[in-house]
């Protein structure tokens, strides 16, 4: 072996990336019944509940708008938010903690691949499927029902929304995986992830648009990564963000990924050193 060959073999190889991506896609589609039930059921329940809640409020108030949203704009909001909620939480399958508990994490530690990178690629596969589901779902709804008044569906909005939701997936992945790595020390961590899910739904803009929160709460939340998880990509898709607003949001989200990634790497390092590989 020459010195050049040795240098080439030391280079990190990323050929596993497409392999993991396609394997994850195959896994998702292997349970087709569950896949479609979750897709339709998840969207319908969240949309219908929110639709009737706001219909009742608008009918009682006889108001033109609430929190800057007309009723038809809210309908548009709740068409997108269940899909984006699902895309962002694509990672929430307790896979990492399960692999720590049953000891199957050991095999990944022996492979010449980055485990956290592998899990993120798997998350991206789920997110891609979620995006396709959203495209199909929104096309069907808008085709049957028409585009709600006030919703400006433009190519630039779709592009900004897609980039925004991809950054949200990264943000959520960093937060959720850091929590899930608590499995190195704790007996059960699903409750931590469910806590994150509840918090994200409320202060991330899945349950209600954040503009209906009191001003002080909006200001406080704007300093956290949560509004950029769901509400912000939804606004981008609806055409409510200018390019400058969108860019500022992306910059802020990416800024948040730095401390979150640092936390993840530290927790991973500490956890790996205490990992015994025998399962719990």
């Amino acid at each position: 072996m020459t010195a050049r060959d040795a240098t080439l073999s030391d280079r990190p190889s990323y050929r596993w990336v497409p392999a993991i991506f396609s394997m994850e896609l195959r896994k998702i589609f292997s349970y087709r019944m569950d896949f479609w039930l979750q897709f339709v059921g998840g969207f319908l329940a969240q949309f219908v509940v929110s639709y009737f809640l706001w219909l009742s409020i608008f009918e009682f108030k006889q108001a033109e708008s609430v929190g800057g949203y007309s009723f038809s704009m809210l309908v548009g909001y709740y068409i997108f938010s269940p899909f984006i909620d699902r895309i962002v939480r694509a990672n929430n399958a307790f896979v990492v903690s399960q692999e720590i508990y049953d000891g199957s994490l050991s095999r990944y530690l022996l492979y010449p691949i980055n485990y956290l990178g592998l899990r993120f690629i798997a998350t991206l596969a789920h997110a891609l499927v979620g995006l396709l589901q959203m495209a199909v779902g929104v096309a069907i709804i808008f085709g049957l029902w028409g585009v709600p008044e006030g919703v400006q569906l433009t190519l630039s909005g779709i592009l900004m929304g897609t980039v925004g939701v991809t950054v949200s997936v990264l943000l959520y992945y960093l937060m959720a995986t850091s929590l899930e790595l608590a499995a190195f020390w704790a007996d059960n961590v699903w409750s931590l992830l469910v806590m994150l899910q509840f918090t994200t739904a409320f202060v991330g803009g899945s349950l209600v648009p954040l503009s209906i929160f009191p001003e002080w709460a909006q200001d406080a939340l704007a300093l956290t990564p949560f509004p950029y998880l769901i509400g912000y990509p939804v606004q981008a898709f609806l055409g409510q963000l200018s390019f400058q607003q969108w860019l500022r949001g992306i910059e802020f989200s990416l800024l948040w990924t730095l401390p979150l990634a640092l936390v993840l790497v530290i927790v991973w390092g500490r956890g790996r050193s205490s990992y015994t590989g025998v399962g719990m």
Partner: peptide
């Protein structure tokens, strides 16, 4: 640890639900 995690999880669920309706009532009587 699981014992306390689950307690906190449900507390978050309670807080979110109460605050959700508190926010709604900021805009409707």
């Amino acid at each position: 640890v699981d014992f306390f995690f689950r307690i906190f999880m449900d507390v978050v669920f309670y807080v979110v639900n109460i605050l959700f309706f508190k926010v709604i009532f900021l805009h409707s009587d």
